[in-house]
């Protein structure tokens, strides 16, 4: 019985002689080197590009790393294990058990990472909101996605969120990102004049991206009128400067025209967010 089991075990693995060990070492070293080089090289290149090319280059980072890892596995596994159907089933069974019991969440994140590389719900350069965290995707790793918020905090979010959380992508791999600037005005004012003035504020912003719609939306509330300017900045990274510019100049124009802000009761105060 023991001899038979030993024989089965021996059949699963190849004899690892010095040549095989050297080959494995070379594959491992080359894999690490290629991953480092591809990540640094593509990031270096992307940071020197602009517009669509920048986003496309960033998107290549996780895909390239995945391809390198898959290639390394394809080369390494036949060296270690005899590539027969029985062996593969045994190997996958053991791996599945380990994954299922010990590394469930971790592997779930890894698999979600693979899915994210294929489906691309977020790419480096995208502005996303995941579980209440809003920021620019800086790096899509195997297990986590790194997001830098407007306050310059780096937040590592596991890909696991992909399975059960809504992911808001503001620009989805492009350079168009809509910004919203809100204004809460006292009900007594000439709405048509305000709408035109707010639109002119957007049209005279240095950050405005022409060719995209500039819309002013008004909504009557019990406490007054809520206006929103919806427009696009030249680059997604300018969104906070753009909204600030719209806000500062709109306040000056409205104030000069004698239009008063609404005095909101505390329970009607809305969260100050740039997106709605």
């Amino acid at each position: 019985m023991d001899d038979a089991a030993t024989g089965q075990y021996a059949k699963l693995f190849n004899d690892l002689d010095s040549e095989a060990l050297i080959t494995l070492g070379v594959v491992l070293g080359a894999t690490i080197l290629l991953i480092i080089l591809s990540q640094r090289g593509l990031n270096w290149l992307a940071n020197r590009l602009h517009g669509q090319a920048r986003f496309r280059t960033f998107a290549l980072v996780p895909v390239t790393r995945l391809l390198i890892l898959v290639a390394a596995l394809v080369i390494s596994v036949p060296i270690i294990i005899k590539p027969s159907l029985g062996n593969m089933i045994a190997l996958l069974g053991v791996a599945g058990l380990a994954i299922g019991f010990a590394l469930k969440d971790y592997v779930s994140s890894l698999i979600a990472g693979v899915v994210s590389a294929v489906e691309m719900p977020y790419r480096p350069g995208d502005w996303v909101e995941i579980d209440g965290v809003y920021g620019e995707v800086k790096h899509v790793g195997l297990r986590t996605v790194d997001v830098v918020t407007a306050d310059d905090d780096l937040v590592a979010i596991p890909h696991l969120k992909l399975w059960d959380s809504a992911i808001y992508n503001a620009n989805n791999g492009g350079v168009s990102l809509q910004c919203v600037a809100s204004f809460y005005l006292h009900p007594e004012h000439e709405a048509e004049w305000v709408r035109t003035a707010l639109r002119d504020v957007a049209l005279t912003s240095a950050y405005l991206r022409f060719g995209k719609p500039v819309v002013v939306v008004a909504e009557e509330q019990p406490w007054g009128t809520h206006y929103r300017i919806r427009a696009y900045p030249l680059d997604p990274r300018q969104q906070f400067d753009f909204v600030t510019d719209l806000t500062v100049r709109s306040k000056a124009v409205l104030s000069a025209a004698g239009i008063r802000p609404a005095l909101l009761p505390p329970d009607a105060a809305l969260p100050a967010r740039h997106r709605h």
């Binding site: 002119d200 504020v201 049209l203 005279t204 100049r249 124009v253």
Partner: peptide, 8 residues
């Protein structure tokens, strides 16, 4: 000038 009053 590219200002609100200038545009108007």
């Amino acid at each position: 000038l590219r200002r609100v009053d200038g545009l108007q």
